[in-house]
């Protein structure tokens, strides 16, 4: 009788421990300390059919834009802490300010502001997949349009 009681208590205790541990595992999403933000500035134009070899990895994404040529102008990567802000110099006297807001469900919320000579052009908040990107484009530049690939990666 005693043995049975003890075994039942042990099973119950083990069950509670396992369920608590599993719950803890599920709830404890690893929140990284900072985010690696990469801005790639690209000039999209229709003057030639040139496709910059440096942009090979983005070919599929850029194909959705109906331009004939794509040239990489600048690549810049910076580590930004959560709720912190980093500015990136963009060709044409523009500045892109990026501020990572939160990390949830493996997605990164980014607050992005593009200014031109201190005049705001766009303010947006976008949630992207970790190690994913989105494209912000349109501002005129050197006879074409400026295309910015904004990506973020939380280790």
């Amino acid at each position: 009788m005693m043995l049975q009681k003890m075994r039942r208590s042990l099973v119950l205790l083990f069950s509670l421990l396992l369920v608590s541990f599993a719950g803890w595992c599920g709830a404890a999403e690893k929140t990284p300390q900072s985010v690696q933000v990469t801005i790639r500035s690209i000039l999209a134009a229709n003057k030639s059919d040139e496709f910059d070899a440096k942009l090979k990895g983005m070919e599929q994404q850029l194909k959705s834009l109906k331009y004939r040529s794509y040239r990489s102008l600048k690549d810049e990567s910076k580590t930004v802490p959560w709720q912190g802000t980093q500015s990136f110099e963009i060709p044409g006297g523009r500045t892109l300010t990026v501020s990572p807001q939160e990390f949830q469900d493996n997605r990164i919320a980014l607050k992005v502001r593009l200014t031109e000579h201190d005049k705001p052009i766009v303010d947006t908040t976008v949630k992207i997949a970790n190690k994913g990107n989105f494209i912000l484009g349109g501002p005129p530049h050197e006879g074409g349009a400026l295309v910015l690939s904004i990506s973020a990666s939380a280790p």
Binding site: Q61, S64, I121, I135, L136, G138, P139
Partner: peptide, 19 residues
């Protein structure tokens, strides 16, 4: 400014286009 939002299915890309 006007803004167009594109979600391209093939490459799963979101594009914000200002014009």
């Amino acid at each position: 400014r006007s803004v167009a939002l594109l979600r391209e299915n093939e490459s799963k890309t979101t594009v914000i286009w200002l014009y």
